[in-house]
């Protein structure tokens, strides 16, 4: 009887020893953080110079007016990369303002095309033609986390035009040679 008990206990001992080999696992871990930074980058691109010249054509015949029909330029493209914090309503805009005196009697206008579709994400929506002034005005709004692609033919094409303010403003035109202006674009949080 004792011998059987001993054999039995020995078998149980072996079984439990083997059982040790098949227990559930033990775990340990650690934290890991990835920081995606806010990004606000804007650039202007052109095939050649970023300086453009707009000059109305002088009349060939006495009695005719200056011809503004060809006083426009579409050489510039606006590119941007943007990362917002993703919160509701946290969007950005591109504003435009000009420094320097705009000649009397004329309006300098600029419009942005729709995004060329070379990038990805929540690209902005153009607002249409803007009459430039010293005060910053929105030209593209609704920019979220996105990139437009870099270089010409990426992002939004800018079209400048110089127009007579109105027919009655012809008298305000003043010969003054060239007037140098600087147009400033800013990618900023929407107000």
């Amino acid at each position: 009887m004792r011998r059987r008990l001993s054999i039995g206990l020995t078998i149980i001992f072996i079984v439990f020893t083997l059982r040790v080999q098949s227990q559930s696992g033990q775990s340990q871990g650690h934290g890991l953080t990835i920081s995606i930074p806010e990004v606000v980058m804007l650039g202007l691109e052109a095939t050649s110079s970023k300086s453009i010249v707009l000059n109305p054509e002088s009349p060939n015949t006495a009695g005719l007016a200056l011809d503004f029909a060809n006083s426009h330029n579409s050489d510039l493209w606006i590119n941007y990369s943007s990362i917002t914090d993703g919160g509701a309503g946290h969007l950005r805009s591109v504003t435009v303002a000009v420094t320097g005196p705009i000649p009397k009697g004329v309006d300098l206008k600029v419009s942005a095309s729709h995004d060329a579709g070379k990038g990805k994400g929540a690209v902005g929506v153009p607002l249409g033609q803007v009459i430039l002034s010293a005060e910053a005005q929105n030209i593209i709004t609704g920019i979220g986390s996105c990139y437009t692609g870099a270089g010409v033919n990426n992002g939004h094409r800018l079209t400048y035009s110089l127009e007579l303010k109105d027919p009655d403003s012809y008298a305000a035109l003043d010969y003054g040679g060239s007037t140098g202006l600087t147009v400033i674009y800013t990618l900023t949080d929407s107000k």
């Binding site: 871990g29 650690h30 934290g31 890991l32 953080t33 990835i34 920081s35 995606i36 930074p37 806010e38 990004v39 990369s81 943007s82 990362i83 917002t84 914090d85 993703g86 919160g87 990805k120 994400g121 986390s145 996105c146 990139y147």
Partner: peptide, 12 residues
């Protein structure tokens, strides 16, 4: 850049 700016955290 399509991912919002944030500190993303996980535990491995």
């Amino acid at each position: 850049v399509l991912i919002p700016a944030d500190d993303f955290e996980t535990t491995v």
